[in-house]
């Protein structure tokens, strides 16, 4: 079995889900003939036909609402947004409808839909193509927010997201789409939602991150290792609902925590993780909780984006600072 990239793993999971359940349909802009702007839906039209892979008119709010309606009828729509920056018109549908329909009808109508979107910077894309506003979605009750960080995780998490009976916003780190290859057996095994994954065990410091920043964070952990600091790396994977147990257990062991995300600092999801640590992990902490995040600026144009995105150096500086606390 050849190793595959993250975007190929997304494609594999979509094909698997469509093959095993004919209620699964895929729609969005350019997803059919063109196979999606990142080719995530490549080949699905040929294999599953035009009733199950549909190019919609160019309207994100529309196809998010379309997903709500068709999901309420028992289909399992997977809608693709070309870039996260264009999801904002869909926020109305996510907040006002998808997250509420089950609750407000007391379970009579449900919303088993998945909204997929590539997010984040680092690919020298035009303005509005590099945003990371996962915390907007994490604030919405009644939905799940899932962010894979590797090909295998993308395959398993996407399968679980599609099989899940509730709405899932599935954010794909586009910088990692083709960054590395991994063996991903097409065995139909879903990865657990609502759980963090410990990617690397350690005893001195906990690094909490998700999505694209997992790469820089693992690099930082390796560098720390050479300095004699054993960093534990946690991939949050499901931001909402948040598995605080795994994070608290880690910090109970290490006493130090750095949270890393690409999104802007203020009211970023790192603030939620830090607040949970303050609530339930305060007496395990030996040092302040640090956040390494994007600046509270507009996402710059590509020439400056590396200055915005947290690099390994900033993670290392924060980690070293925390190691000063005995």
């Amino acid at each position: 079995m050849p190793d595959i990239t993250l975007v190929e793993a997304v494609n594999l999971a979509l094909a698997r889900a469509m093959a095993e359940d004919d209620r699964v349909i895929v729609f969005g802009e350019d997803v059919a003939v063109d196979g999606g702007v990142f080719r995530a839906t490549d080949g699905l039209l040929a294999r599953f036909g035009p009733d199950r892979v549909l190019d919609t008119p160019l309207s994100e709010g529309l196809f998010a609402g379309l997903a709500v309606g068709v999901a309420a009828q028992g289909f399992r729509p997977v809608a693709e947004f070309q870039f996260m920056g264009f999801m904002l018109p869909a926020l109305d549908q996510v907040m006002n409808h998808a997250g509420r329909l089950r609750n407000r009808t007391r379970g009579r109508l449900t919303c088993p839909l998945v909204l997929r979107a590539p997010y984040g910077g680092g690919i020298h894309a035009p303005e509005h193509h590099s945003e990371s506003f996962e915390s907007l979605f994490a604030h919405v009750p009644g939905i799940r927010v899932v962010v894979p960080s590797s090909p295998a995780r993308a395959y398993g998490l996407l399968l679980s997201a599609i099989r899940d009976p509730d709405p899932v916003v599935f954010l794909e780190p586009k910088r990692l789409y083709r960054a590395r290859r991994q063996e991903v057996p097409d065995d139909g095994a879903g990865a657990p939602l609502d759980r963090c994954f410990v990617l690397r065990p350690g005893t001195d410091l906990t690094l909490v991150t998700w999505g694209a920043m997992v790469a820089e964070t693992l690099d930082a952990a390796q560098a720390l290792d050479r300095e004699g600091v054993a960093a534990e790396v946690i991939d949050v994977a499901t931001l909402k609902p948040l598995d605080t147990d795994t994070i608290l257990a880690s910090v109970a062991k290490t006493g130090r925590c750095v949270i890393v995300h690409e999104a802007a600092l203020t009211a970023g999801f790192g603030a939620e993780v830090a607040a949970r640590l303050a609530d339930d992990g305060l007496f395990d902490l030996r040092a302040p909780v640090r956040r390494v995040a994007g600046w509270d600026t507009v996402m710059p144009y590509p020439r400056q984006e590396r200055r915005y995105m947290p690099g390994t150096d900033r993670i290392l500086a924060a980690a070293r600072g925390l190691m000063e606390y005995a």
């Binding site: 609402g65 379309l66 709500v68 309606g69 309420a72 549908q93």
Partner: peptide, 14 residues
Amino acid sequence: GSHAPHAAGVALAF
């Protein structure tokens, strides 16, 4: 007006 896309989704299902 936010329900109009839902109606389209229901009609699509049919």
